[in-house]
């Protein structure tokens, strides 16, 4: 996992969603962040906008209970790696 990816995710969680820093760790499950389903959807939107990519739906359903922040970061890193190079 790219440590920068996790830092950005943690920053968005704290600043936009007011999640307490102690709840934010790589192995935190999305469910344990204290966000309801609507806020989780909004969080994924915010992260996708921040990284300027879309995570495939089959890769990440934020309502799925066991997904962790590491899983989210892995999907983001993969998205960044696969992004087409500027022409």
């Amino acid at each position: 996992m790219n440590p920068h990816t996790f830092e950005v995710v943690a920053e968005v969680l704290q600043q936009q969603f007011h999640v307490e820093p102690e709840k934010i760790a790589p192995d935190s499950s999305l469910q344990a962040l204290g966000l309801d389903s609507l806020s989780l959807m909004e969080f994924v939107f915010a992260i996708e906008d921040r990284f300027e990519l879309r995570i495939p739906e089959e890769r990440l359903d934020p309502r799925q209970s066991q997904l962790t922040l590491t899983d989210l970061c892995a999907a983001l890193d993969e998205g960044v790696a696969n992004r087409p190079l500027p022409a």
Binding site: S39, M41, E42, F45
Partner: peptide, 10 residues
């Protein structure tokens, strides 16, 4: 051409 946010209604 951006997406509608999930929280737009509320």
């Amino acid at each position: 051409s951006r997406r509608i946010r999930p929280t737009s209604v509320v």
